[in-house]
Amino acid sequence: MKPIIETKSLSKWYGNVLGLSDVTLQIEPGIVGILGPNGAGKSTFLKLITGQIKPNIGIVRVKGQKVRNNYHLFSIIGFCPERDFFYEEMTGWQFIISLLKLHHFSPSEIESRAQKALEIVELVEDKDRVIRSYSRGMRQRLKVAQAIAHDPEIIVLDEPLSGLDPLGRRKIIHLIKSYKGEGRTIIVSSHVLPEIEAMTKRIILIHQGKIFAQGDIHYIRDLIDTHPHIISIKCSDARMLASKFIHQDYVLKVHFSSSNDSLLIETNNRDKLFSLLPSLFIENKIEVDEITSPDDNLQAVFDYLVGK
């Protein structure tokens, strides 16, 4: 398949700070997830491929054309920025209408497209409210609406799920997935693995400005699953609970808290441990107050993968 977006040796510095380093990749139609912890270079990459900033080294091509100062390309690109900034005094409707005007559609087409975009993100009822009064989730959905209103072929969404409640998140995920079969190219960034996982299997891992891995999500999952996880359990009898799974080969370490009411378990097979826990609680009549995973974040996984 012919790549839609190509980058070669793409590098970007902000003064002495490295934004992106030597990124060479090709993105084909479909949904691609850009995954990385905060500050990894995801937004820099998305800004470079949409021509908003200049690379220090390297080239970016979208459909074989240079992207910076090539405004014609934006008739087929929709961009949803990560930052939460708007023309606050406008209503949601005025905001979408104004941006659609810049696409040179006819007045009737502008209205119908704005209506459709707001329907998709379920903001029709609130379209006449000023943006200043919108909740975080509504603002996020409005950003997505302006990115899709002109029906672009390439949709670039920078952290589109941040600030959304679970229902809103599910709707946006559903919307993004619905575009998959239409031959579009959708690039979505996130620092939350399950969010990306819910949308696509093709992911690019970015860490410290570099492409750390790319490919099928199962490959990344396999890497991540070998990462020793720490699970914290606060319960009525921590020592008894520990005695029940200490002999399991996937349990590597157990620590007790000084107050003896919680324990930290280090395991290299989180799924097996989680499947065992409910029966142990019931059989031994252990009351559970809290189960958390202190290192269950992407940064910890990346730190493990890069061998820190």
Binding site: G51, Q52, F74, P81, F85, Y87, L99, L102, H104
Partner: peptide, 12 residues
């Protein structure tokens, strides 16, 4: 105001 992105990602 960081609204520049909305204008510079349009075909104008």
């Amino acid at each position: 105001g960081q609204t520049l992105t909305y204008l510079t990602t349009r075909p104008i």
